[in-house]
Amino acid sequence: MITLISSDKRKFHVLEEVANQSLTIRDVIEDRRGRRRADRIILVTNINSKIPEKVIVYWLRHFLMPEEIAHASMSHKKAEKLKKWEAKFFDTDIDTLNDLILAADSLDIPSLFDGACEKVSDILKNRSAEEVGEISKIENEFTHEEEEEEIPSENAWVWRNEFA
């Protein structure tokens, strides 16, 4: 058993085999092998407790079939099921997704990272710059000239409507 502690001091107990899906955790455990029990506690900083919960759920789902995923030998039905499950899993608000991306990045879980990135890009897809700015809470600080002339000339094709 391994204990993960989130930044708001909540504890999560996970089987070592399950947590091994995080390459970071696997390395840490490998380094500490043979030492005291206290060393099986891992702090996951700058992540609030909602995220470890989600990450662990993700781990458990993937733990059941790691080899099959790696070698693409999964049956069609199973792959379909997993796809559906992932779609549901990633169907949350953009803030949670950002947190998930951060967590996946620091814990080094490539499939989770890619999945979350893809979902965020799905949310930003097919929207105007204003909408994207609103969703991502980014303030437009360009001057009028920049916005009207300079930037559109850089990638001219993007602003034409013919490539819908």
Partner: peptide
Amino acid sequence: ILLCVISFLPPKDAARTSILC
């Protein structure tokens, strides 16, 4: 990380992110 997110966008949407800020 942002670059990873952008790389999932279709090229047109990706290019348009340059106007955000």
